[in-house]
Design a protein around this nucleic acid. Structure first.
Length: 600
RNA sequence: GCGGGUGUAGCUCAGUUGGUUAGAGCGCCGCCCUGUCACGGCGGAGGUCGCGGGUUCAAAUCCCGUCUCUCGCGCCA
């Protein structure tokens, strides 16, 4: 007989009745009824009920065992009597009468329960992650992750891509997020950087003549955390040669769509996968107030600046902002005019909590406009608002006034808040049970950096400007678009990518416009720039945040739920103690001295 | 760096206008129990009320400071 098991904990059925079997696993639950004692034994496959009764000399020993101990049980499979069959268990028709037991590893008292989700806080779950991971829900999510990654590999190879590996000890890049640095012992005073993404390496692979690259790539960024951000995370990194933007979409979209369709019933509810039309960045910012709109929310934003600029409108709070170049954005909320005053007060309170003066609105009911600011907007102007926004009797419209970018962003947040408020008030507004995808396209190449008072890249500096060199030379830089795109799903940015700039002279020009001289370009990106000078194919690609994909499929609110081992929001690992202080000797080897910040 | 929330038993939480012995469920320990599968019954142990200071006859409760975790802003090409 095998040393540990003849069967797994989900295998035994009526067909095995009478057989001598050996099972190993964790003690899931113990029911001690005095003269009879049940042990529910668990492995990753399932549960099996084992028992002893007072005829067994083992009863006195087993009743001292604690849950989560690992044991090996020998016994005979018995059919359960009709009245003791448990239809909720796969093995519920049988039980194992224990003949012999071996305690493999006794468990101390556990800090939280494994058999149920007892609501233990995240900090303690992470500190005892190996216990947390034993729970059924976590087991399922980690297996989902593994299955998603396996499926991605299958589908990408199926599309003619090959999987590459790129350096982890890489060079620091001046753009983007802060780098995690690794000191070099052999080169005192010098550092490697962990890659924020294998961006340059994958482009270099294209220049090396490999046509289709992908990688499940670890990425590292030293910025503050969020529910959907981690210090280290994984991307499905993709790059292709001799392709247009549409070809990238047409190649990747079926992979992602079928991936989601394959796993979209993970939560038990089958979700629809809908790929919506692409949205230009500018339109997304106007209509949704975000470059990652949640298209399940049907509310749209419109611009009503011209209405509040009219001479017959006397709402001075907005007029003052408009005169300084500001805009007024509006969100139509259908069929809310019968909502109680508290509905609007709550949204107003939300806006104030966000740092705004409030959230002005007009109600259209009984053929007239009502609400606090309606009296400043005469009927003709109200008609114009209706025309622009599509408002009709019974609707309300909310207003946001500010300079263009903050107005767009705040309108986006308000669009979400209004939608949630309507859902809470019982007016079902946000769609559920669906993954709504779209591509956001036509990102601007540059933006005006208010802080530095200069023009800078708005996204990826390696993107190809849509008009090539001609656009860079002739157009206002702020009017130049890039072949740059994001893939958005349910309000999350799942992927970002671009057709790259493979022409060194265009690259020089592009960086020049952003104020970076040739010397800076050579210094920071000399390796790749040189590669471009020896024959670079037109190429492009993108990178999907795999963790976010899994988070959406698992319907979890944060990324930590879909990683086996993960750091907390402060990017600390309380289980393994990272980061930690390092021995003086080790630092000496690296020629590093710690200079702590002064505490005030 | 900033803002919101949070912190009471091993875990999840309750705790009134400040009031004398800080509670509950689960878990743990002991005893009882032959059909449980959220077993049941009786009994018990377990607390620096995050930490420090202050107000008060009296503080889990009020005030000040500080720390933790968490959500968001900044940041994340």
């Amino acid at each position: 007989m095998h040393a540990y098991r003849t069967h797994k904990c989900d295998e035994l059925t009526k067909e095995h009745v009478g057989q001598d079997v050996r099972l190993s696993g964790w003690i899931h639950r113990i029911y001690d009824l005095g003269g009879v004692l049940f042990i529910i034994l668990r492995d990753t496959y399932g549960l099996t009920q084992c028992l002893v009764d007072e005829n067994s000399p083992l009863l006195g020993e087993i009743n001292k065992w604690r849950v989560e101990s690992v044991v090996t049980i020998d016994g005979k499979v018995r059919a359960r009597s009709a009245d003791t069959i448990n239809p909720k268990m796969k093995t519920g028709e049988i039980e194992v009468y224990i003949a012999n037991v071996t305690m493999q590893s006794a468990a101390e008292i556990i800090p939280f329960q494994v058999y149920e989700d007892d609501g233990a806080g995240e900090d303690i779950r992470l500190r005892y992650r190996y216990l947390d991971l034993r729970r059924d829900g976590m087991h399922k999510k980690i297996r989902l992750r593994n299955n998603v990654i396996s499926t991605i590999r299958d589908k990408m190879w199926g599309q003619g891509f090959q999987e590459f590996q790129t350096p982890i000890l890489a060079a620091s890049s001046p753009e983007g997020a802060r780098d995690y640095l690794v000191p070099s012992r052999l080169h005192p005073g010098k550092f490697y950087a962990l890659p924020q993404a294998p961006q340059q390496f994958k482009q270099l692979l294209m220049m090396s003549g490999f046509d289709r690259y992908f990688q499940i790539a670890p990425c590292f960024r030293d910025e503050d955390g969020r529910a959907d951000r981690l210090a280290e995370f994984y991307q499905l990194d993709v790059e292709m040669s001799f392709v247009t933007q549409d070809e990238v979409f047409n190649t990747v979209q079926p992979v992602v769509k079928s991936l989601f369709e394959k796993f979209s019933d993970f939560t038990g509810e089958k979700r629809e996968v809908i790929w919506c039309d692409s949205i230009p960045f500018k339109e997304a910012m106007l209509k949704y107030g975000s470059d990652k709109p949640d298209l399940r929310n049907p509310l749209e934003i419109c611009d009503v600046t011209e209405v509040f600029a009219r001479d017959d409108v006397s709402f001075n709070a907005f007029k003052g902002v408009i005169s300084k170049g500001g805009v007024v954005r509006a969100i139509r909320a259908p069929d809310v005019s019968t909502m109680p005053r508290s509905f609007f007060d709550k949204l107003n309170g939300w806006a104030q909590g966000e740092g705004a003066a409030g959230l002005g609105y007009i109600l259209f009911a009984d053929g007239e406009g009502k609400g606090p600011i309606a009296k400043f907007v005469p009927e003709a102007a109200q008609e114009q608002i209706k025309e622009i926004s599509g408002c009709k009797d019974g609707d309300a419209i909310f207003f946001i006034c500010n300079q263009e970018l903050p107005a767009a962003k705040f309108a986006g947040a308000a669009r979400d808040a209004v939608c949630s408020a309507m859902d809470e008030a019982g007016i079902k507004t946000r769609e559920t049970g669906v993954y709504k995808f779209c591509w956001i396209v036509d990102f601007p190449m540059y933006e005006f950096d208010e802080k530095a008072q200069k023009i800078d890249f708005s996204h990826n500096p390696f993107s190809m400007p849509q008009g090539g060199m001609a656009d860079l030379e002739e157009k206002d830089p702020l009017d130049v678009y890039a072949f740059q795109y994001d893939c958005v799903c349910n309000g999350f940015e799942l992927a970002s990518g671009a057709i790259r700039n493979h022409r060194p002279e265009i690259m020089e020009k592009a960086f020049g416009i952003a104020g970076y001289g040739k010397d800076v370009l050579e210094d920071k990106f000399g390796g790749m720039l040189n590669a471009m000078r020896y024959g670079a194919p037109p190429h492009g690609g993108l990178a999907f945040g795999i963790d976010r994909v899994i988070m959406l499929l698992a319907d979890e609110p944060n990324l930590r739920e879909v990683y086996a081992f993960v750091m907390n929001g402060q990017y600390e690992d309380q289980m393994m103690q990272a980061p930690s202080q390092i021995d003086e000797e080790l630092l000496k080897d690296l020629h590093i001295k710690i200079s702590m910040p002064e505490k005030v």
